[in-house]
Amino acid sequence: MKVLKVNPVVLIIINIIAPSMYVFLNGKYLQVFLLIFAGALLALMGRFKSLIAMLAVYFSMMAIYTVTVGSDKFKFIALFFIVLVQSVPCLSLASILVRKYNSAQLLSALETIHIPRVLVIAITITLKYIPTFKREFSYILESMRLRGISFTWKHPIKSFQYFIVPQLFRCAALAEEVTAAGYVKGIDVPTKRTSFFEEKIRILDIAVLFVFVIGLAGGFLWKQI
């Protein structure tokens, strides 16, 4: 089966609009719609691993919610997860953005939707930091193993400190390195940036957005009824 190629702009737009809709729409409706929408999109894009991961995370969170919501003592856990679970569909779509497209492609996509340049640079640097963080994290875990400092649930705070502290210190150094890398390559040029990877928005991209909007519109109707 041919997989659907989606313009990154579409994913970005969805990720900007979807969370803000919680203000206007019925939470339950939106939550279910976004899950189905994200699930269908992931399946069409051939991202079955992400799909399974998303469903697994979603339903385990819902399970925790269902178990804890009845008890007064643990209700806070339920509330915590019901808030968290709403971001799962969006986060899984965002993860595709980071994994499938390189930072140059993302930068071009962001430029096409006319976001201010300063913001574009900030977003791109943040997105670039994610894979770097992942790589560094694996080095740190490996080094903890060799030092015999392993993560134990017996001392979660202490264990957490061991791998978060080095990361925090790295952040400062990395931020400077990344900024330098951008600056010496002309990221501050005031003229409009061009794009090598620019992809035209195609009918299919519009179709995806159309389905998304229809779904949201359905939410407004639902609210009326």
Partner: peptide, 10 residues
């Protein structure tokens, strides 16, 4: 990357 920043065409 730098060519894009400097606005080269494709």
């Amino acid at each position: 990357f730098s060519m894009e920043n400097y606005g080269y065409d494709k």
